[in-house]
Simulated assay, not measured.
Amino acid sequence: MIKDLRTLRVLLLQPKSSEGEELWQHLIRIGCQVQTSWPPPSVIPHNIDVVFAFLRPIIEGDIVWNWNADDPPAVLIAIVDYENPIIVEKVLRLRAQAVIGLPLRTFGILANILLSVNNHRREERLRARVERLTAKLKAHRDIDKAKGILMITNKMTEQVAYATLREQAMNKRTTIEAMALAIINASDLLKLQMPQTTDFAS
């Protein structure tokens, strides 16, 4: 992480102020690549690693900032100059990885950056793992459902249904998961196209 410090790209969100200038200079001193922006951009640039945001001017200016807290594009470190329910609620809603108070004390900023970046990267790895496991679970469910469709419509055993799925996937040069989904979609389409019959009892 220390070696990576000079490659970190930082976005400083703050209107022109002495505190912002002091923070900018300190970030430059510790080796970060820093750029500033105000008001906050609608989309955080994809090459930004860490965002420092001064919250009071955002709140007092009633500025709409579309920060995706569920899937943050970068590490978020909030800068606050006082605590009240509105500030605290904003910090929690944004899910900031760290909070730095004003007046600015440069001691601890480096540690906050490194810890926050490390935690953010770990969360990204966990999210990616969850997404992979979710996709794998869905694929298994689709294969089981497709096997069930083949077993019912063609009176196959489970083993034969799976072998058929695999063979069809190989013939069409696709994955067995994609083949299963195609069978499910085709089955659903046939159900939609079947005419609805009414049984008139005499």
Results as ranks from 00 to 15, higher is better:
Asp81Tyr: 05
Ile109Gly: 09
Ala74Ile: 00
Ser187Gln: 09
Arg129Cys: 11
Ile58Arg: 01
Leu126Lys: 08
Glu22Val: 06
Arg132Lys: 12
Ile2Gly: 10
Ile58Ala: 01
Val43Gln: 09
Arg129Asn: 15
Asp49Tyr: 01
Ala111Glu: 15
Ala178Trp: 07
Thr157Pro: 03
Ser17Ala: 03
Val10Cys: 07
Gly20Phe: 03
Pro57Cys: 08
Ser17Gly: 04
Arg6Asp: 13
Ser17Glu: 04
Val160Met: 10
Ile77Cys: 05
Asp142Ile: 06
Asn112Trp: 12
Trp67Asp: 02
Val64Ala: 12
Gln193Pro: 01
Asn154Pro: 00
Ala98Phe: 08
Ile44Lys: 00
Pro57Val: 11
Ala163Lys: 08
Asp144Thr: 15
Asn119Tyr: 09
Gln159His: 14
Ala111Arg: 13
Met1Ala: 14
Ile30Thr: 04
Asp142Tyr: 14
Lys3Thr: 06
Leu115Tyr: 11
Asn154Cys: 12
Glu60Arg: 15
Gly108Lys: 02
Lys16Tyr: 07
Glu131Trp: 07
Thr153Pro: 02
Ala135Gly: 04
Ala163Cys: 06
Ile79His: 00
Arg9Leu: 04
Asn118Val: 06
Ala128Gly: 06
Pro39Arg: 03
Lys138Ile: 10
Pro73Asp: 07
His26Leu: 11
Ala96Pro: 08
Ala146Tyr: 01
Gly20Glu: 01
Trp65Asn: 01
Val80Pro: 00
Lys147Gln: 09
Gln159Lys: 14
Ala201Phe: 13
His26Pro: 05
Ala186Ile: 05
Asn119Arg: 15
Phe54His: 14
Ile28Phe: 13
Asp71Cys: 12
Ala178Met: 11
Gln196Ser: 11
Leu102Asn: 07
Arg141Asp: 12
Ile63Leu: 10
Glu89Phe: 09
Lys16Asn: 11
Ala161Asn: 03
Ile48Pro: 03
Leu102Tyr: 03
Leu192Ala: 12
Met179Asp: 06
Thr174Leu: 08
Ala78Trp: 03
Gly101Trp: 14
Asn154Leu: 14
Arg132Glu: 11
Leu55Glu: 00
Ala169Cys: 07
Arg129Ile: 07
Ala186Trp: 09
Thr36Asn: 08
Leu181Pro: 01
Thr198Leu: 13
Met156Val: 05
Arg125Phe: 14
Gly148His: 09
Gly148Asp: 10
Asp4Phe: 13
Asn68Thr: 05
